[in-house]
Write a protein that binds this DNA or RNA. Sequence first.
DNA 1: ACAGAACGGTATCAAATGATACACAACCAA
DNA 2: TTGGTTGTGTATCATTTGATACCGTTCTGT
Lengths: 209, 209
Amino acid sequence: MTITNDLFKKLTFFSEPEFKGELLQHGQLLSFNKGDVIVRDGQYVKFLPIVLKGAIRVFQQSEDREILLYYVRAEETCTISLAAAYFNNKSTSHGVVTEPTEVLIFPASLIEQWQLKYPSWNRYVMQMFRTRYDQLISSFQGVAFEHIDVRVLEYLKNTAHNEGSKSVCLSHQQLAAELGTTRVVVSRILKEYERKKKIKLFRGRIELL
Amino acid sequence: MTITNDLFKKLTFFSEPEFKGELLQHGQLLSFNKGDVIVRDGQYVKFLPIVLKGAIRVFQQSEDREILLYYVRAEETCTISLAAAYFNNKSTSHGVVTEPTEVLIFPASLIEQWQLKYPSWNRYVMQMFRTRYDQLISSFQGVAFEHIDVRVLEYLKNTAHNEGSKSVCLSHQQLAAELGTTRVVVSRILKEYERKKKIKLFRGRIELL
DNA sequence: ACAGAACGGTATCAAATGATACACAACCAA
DNA sequence: TTGGTTGTGTATCATTTGATACCGTTCTGT
């Protein structure tokens, strides 16, 4: 896609014509495939990405497990990159592309000056921080207070709802990675929920009843 | 304390004289005592507080347990209040004063317009979001991946270090509340650490060796 | 067509954490 | 001084989650 007004059909958040001009001037379009690593833990962030299409999965990793932080979808940016870029610090998590993805990137040095010049950009930044913070608080609360079986069901319901579907397509291994537990625990819990007639299990897919 | 230039001896972050004037004009000084509730979960935030002196403990609560999010100390604000206030939403956690505290509050409606007018305020807001974000990410990682005994020791070391002391003054019950576990688990773990000569236990106080 | 990889389910055992109870010591307010 | 409260430590048991292993089925790449 050429970097033209098509861009602003995908980025409806920004309103100032001059700002759009600067985005065109300083921005660079990149395409990624599933599996590409966008952000690495411990890495400096020089450019801020805004997703135009597709998704980036942002997560934390320990020696033998990982856990989902959030997904960056169309019109969103990665707040950890934003926070890191703003103060020229390192990222504190990983970001991997989960489906074909198009991204607009621009130098991180522009973040602050744009905040002072363009209210819609400032509002966007605050909105991103706010949304992620709420998501993170919610996840934190789940991990701290809820049993893993409850979290499994909540995840399935939320994901199905967000996709406007009754099914969720992912393996037990993937679900375990999202929630920071092991594949065997997930298989055990899902089988129990199937016995209780809350879900129906297929290979690579889980249907909510 | 009268709201004069004394204020800016405690708020060194802001540099624009005009901004200082607006803080004096719109700000209001309040004092609180230990135990006072500043923020309630589910409550709208109309005013943003900046702590001048003292501390506010911000935490989440479930039916029978709670867990620390962060402490708001001098020159800091509560990011959850900030996020809630900015978009006129409800707070997602509780804030309670832990020692005699002085706070400057001003209407939340001023946050955004000040961001556009005063770079030091904008930088402050971003800094607050960034700091809290990092803290939350770190706490999340601990809860998700680390055993409770490791988290106990980390908490004690961090707290002692932040206070420039070798001791931490708090009960087992309070430590349990900070970490989202039970008093019995904490007593058991601390006793074991004492046996391993990593700490020394006193009533209401824990000394690091 | 076939070998290897991936997925799912179950079994068994261990470790970690939570629940409940109780006893004792230290502290504090009257 | 004293009674009540708070704090601490231990015991016992239950539940939850993790580790390891194994087996059978399905899928995929050559």
